[in-house]
């Protein structure tokens, strides 16, 4: 049972990490355009990748 004392805090940390990562993604427009990115790999020679910041 003692292993729970490690595993439970670990699960909580991972949970917090996952939520933080998701919030970051939403705030950085990772979910704002679900259509164009699927085409980018088909483009052979991107002269300037549309990377912001």
């Amino acid at each position: 049972m003692n292993v729970l004392l490690v595993m439970i805090p670990l699960s909580l940390v991972l949970l917090a990490g996952a939520i933080a990562a998701f919030f970051w993604a939403v705030d950085h427009d990772q979910f704002s355009d679900m259509e164009t990115p699927s085409l980018l790999p088909l483009d052979d020679d991107p002269t300037r990748p549309p990377v912001t910041e």
Binding site: T36, L39, P46, P50, T52, E53
Partner: peptide, 23 residues
Amino acid sequence: AACVMVVERALFAEPGVEDVEIN
């Protein structure tokens, strides 16, 4: 979606453009 890509790239090709978001 291809249009979206062209428009986005054309805007980014202009110097000084920082961010483009197209729906």
